[in-house]
Write a protein that binds this DNA or RNA. Structure first.
Lengths: 249, 249
DNA sequence: TTGAATCATGCAAATGTAGGCAATAAATTG
DNA sequence: CAATTTATTGCCTACATTTGCATGATTCAA
């Protein structure tokens, strides 16, 4: 039997049954297990199936049922969150925005830290509930499906009635000249309200977003008191932000 | 059975039932509990599910009050939720309470149903966000750690400004004479506000809670318009509720 | 606080894997 | 066609992974 022919057979069996055992296929094709192993290794390298210990699995079988909720640039965001946490101390009253970076911040808050956290983000609230010493106060309102945060008049009104020490916010786009901008008008309105209710505003943003802009403006760049990226503070990519009285971490 | 295959199976079961017991899975897949434990540990490390003592829960369903991991009760609650959903039609404006039963209701809402849902429960909001045709409006306020719902003056105030067709509520305890009661005073205040803002109130309760009572009272039993348990409506356990003008499903 | 359930750990048996080697088959080249 | 190179295959050995079990630690609920 030709190698090519054998590999085709292996593929069809995998497609048909979603999986095979190397021993089974070796027996049914009457070749040695080593040959099959080599075949499967090649097919795996060609991305035609997935080789696992003792057998192989159809690609569709794995990718369909596993939800890939990989967070983009998670390591950078973790680094940012770690820096942000150094700003917190017992008794702080803070606001935490939505988005994956702020979510990471919420997740990494040490459980012995005594905080009062406001948030309008459902995932952030969820994370914060796991911290025994954090008082969580939810800002209600209509919830945006994509961003999973409360938006709209009600949310903005509620924000107008509070005052926090720090707010930690994310942004869609940030530029040293154009400031913080977003794609979505409703989000911008909420961001404005958040900045208004904060004594100090901390921007969390991965460096990839630097020097980008979009349609609607949340605030000028000098509305930001502290800016945190995953970069070292000295990095030259941050140069254009230095003459704005912004503390860079 | 391949390890990979087994792990896929575990994942699907977790997605399907929201939670599993390691012992159940081990038995149904006919491998040792140790193997399942190791699998779940790996899947947890890969962030595909959350491992808890004695079992695992789906990530999307982080109602992590560690009790109620019993699959038997879950099935009762699923049954209740299925009945409750028959009350809904396109355009309905409803309120969904917190608790595992209401969470189940939220999870099972068909994705083609057009609804406006108010809720003060973070896990419920989370579930509802997955439904493209459901408008989610969050009631804000201080969030209770155990019950993961907004409570307090702000929540109650917000509730006073809305009116919904149906509210679906759970309760800690229910008795045909003493009505709906709770262990927690704050929760009672919110329940009262919910009932006040509803044209009709639907109680969801597993039969285990029937004829039990506690310290603080949410409402008389005849404040309830419809009552849903996992039992058949004719079941004699429900007899004491029949002379209260309550529709029993 | 106690007892039962669950968990982590180490171990051993079974099974699977990688890489080297030699025999054979196939392809290439002069 | 013959000689040489290359590819494929099976076998071997050392090593890695997986699994179930035993043990003692930990956790949970009453």
């Amino acid at each position: 039997m030709l190698k090519e022919e054998r590999q085709q057979t292996i593929l069809s069996v995998v497609e048909l049954h979603n999986r095979i055992l190397l021993t089974d296929i070796a027996e049914s094709l009457d070749v040695s297990i080593d040959t099959i192993r080599r075949d499967v290794k090649e097919l795996d390298a060609e991305n035609k199936l997935k080789k696992v210990h003792g057998g192989a699995i159809s690609l569709g079988f794995t990718t369909n049922s596993v939800k890939n909720q990989n967070i983009y640039r998670l390591e950078q965001k973790t680094r940012i969150a770690e820096k942000a946490i150094t700003l917190l101390k017992d008794g702080s009253v803070i606001f935490v925005d939505g988005g994956t970076t702020c979510n990471e911040l919420a997740r990494l808050i040490p459980s012995n830290l005594d905080l009062t956290c406001f948030t309008h983000s459902i995932p952030v609230a969820m994370e914060l509930l796991a911290k025994p010493n954090v008082t969580v106060i939810l800002i209600g309102g209509q919830v945006s499906k994509e961003s999973q945060i409360s938006i709209g008049a009600n949310a903005i009104h509620n924000l107008s009635e509070i005052k926090v020490d720090y707010s930690f916010i994310g942004t869609g786009y940030v530029d040293s000249f154009y400031g913080l901008t977003e794609f979505d008008w409703d989000i911008v309105q909420v961001k404005k309200a958040i900045i208004k209710c904060s004594k100090k505003t901390v921007l969390l943003s991965i460096s990839e977003k630097l020097n980008s802009q979009h349609r609607y403006k949340s605030c000028d760049i000098n509305a930001i008191n502290t800016m945190i990226t995953e970069l070292e503070p000295e990095n030259e990519l941050l140069n254009s932000f230095r003459n704005h009285d912004i503390r860079i971490l």
